[in-house]
Computed example of a mutant assay.
Amino acid sequence: MDENKDWKKKYQELFPDVKTVITSKKVRDVTKMALMMVDGEAGATEQTNQLSDFTLPLMDKVQILIKGQAMHFEELKHLMAAIWMKPDIRKKVEAGEVFGIQENQNDYNYSRLSLDNGRLLLHCLQNQPPPHVAITLPVSEIIKTLNPKSTITFLDMAGEGLTRGRVYIRVSRDRPQARQFVGLCTGQPGSSFLNTRLNRVWDKGGKEECVYGGNYNFNDYRVYGPYTFVGLVSFKSHSEKSGEFCISTNIGYKSVGAVIGQVESGLEVLKAAVQLNDITQVTVVDCGVVVPL
């Protein structure tokens, strides 16, 4: 009983915003071993000692840890959260020394992880190698910890006359267009929103004002609305690797494309972009997803 109380306290310290704490024996045992592996506690087994070495990729440690155990989404999420929040790992994230990795046909792409006001961010994949001291973790494994029903993405925008700002968008992933939008934020499909420009403003100063951006090849202006709230995000895919997003900046917007989510914060960045003489000078300088902790 005392051990259960200790672990409940440990989880509440790790996850202060979570009201219900998972305390199944498997989760407790797995997380306890994970914490020992990261800390290198005295008395750890040879297996845990192997995992205290930062030269071993983080996912290799996790795979050793959960080998032979089938883990559900919530268990994997809590395990990874426990690892991310350890002081040593957190310091490496803050120092820019933790990266996701994805193998391509002849090369590797890497995605930096960072912290923003307590949020763990997975940035877009790029063909830029990390520092040699970096911990690496397969992007595919990080993506598994995302909420399968709702994912928070982000777009960083900057341009001439526009101070760099971040727009957080919560995407409901219950339709193909939404999953494709998330993929273009992470760069997993091979293409991404990174370095794309905002395309145009519709009905500037009017009730249907909205901003278009992303890669696109055509637009047939089919109306799927109306929808009447600010910050609505819709997306039209034109191929497996491209598409056009549209974000409303006023309440009279009529969606062109499939509605996939809504802006959670950063709408002021888009409203500032609308006021520019040439919105095509605004570029998506970074993008990615929020990894739940």
Rank of each mutant, 00 (worst) to 15 (best):
N4C: 01
K5C: 00
W7G: 08
W7V: 10
K8G: 07
K8L: 13
K8I: 10
K9Y: 03
Y11D: 08
E13Y: 05
F15K: 01
K19M: 02
T20C: 02
I22P: 12
T23Y: 00
S24E: 15
K25T: 15
V30Q: 00
M33C: 01
M33K: 14
M37Q: 15
D39N: 12
G43D: 06
G43L: 15
A44I: 05
T45H: 08
Q47G: 01
D53I: 03
P57A: 07
M59I: 05
K67N: 15
A70D: 08
L76F: 06
L79A: 08
M80C: 07
A82N: 06
I83L: 03
K86N: 10
R90I: 07
A95C: 02
G96I: 03
V98W: 08
Q102A: 14
N104W: 11
Q105V: 11
Q105P: 00
Y108N: 15
G118M: 15
L120Y: 03
P130R: 05
H132F: 01
V133H: 12
P138V: 11
P138S: 09
S140C: 07
I142C: 12
T145F: 06
N147R: 04
K149S: 13
S150Y: 11
I152D: 09
I152A: 06
I152R: 08
F154Y: 12
F154R: 09
G159P: 01
G159T: 08
L162N: 01
L162Q: 02
R166S: 10
R170Y: 04
R170L: 11
V171R: 00
A178V: 12
A178C: 13
V182F: 09
V182P: 00
T186L: 05
Q188L: 09
Q188Y: 10
P189N: 04
P189W: 04
S191G: 00
F193V: 03
L194P: 00
N195K: 07
L198E: 06
V201A: 14
V201T: 11
K204C: 01
F218W: 15
G225N: 15
V230P: 00
V230Y: 05
V233S: 09
K236Q: 13
S239C: 09
G243A: 11
E244K: 13
F245N: 02
T249Y: 09
N250D: 11
K254N: 13
K254Q: 12
V256T: 14
V259N: 09
S265A: 14
G266Q: 02
L270K: 04
L270F: 10
K271V: 01
A272G: 12
A273P: 06
N277V: 06
T283F: 08
D286C: 08
C287D: 01
V291S: 00
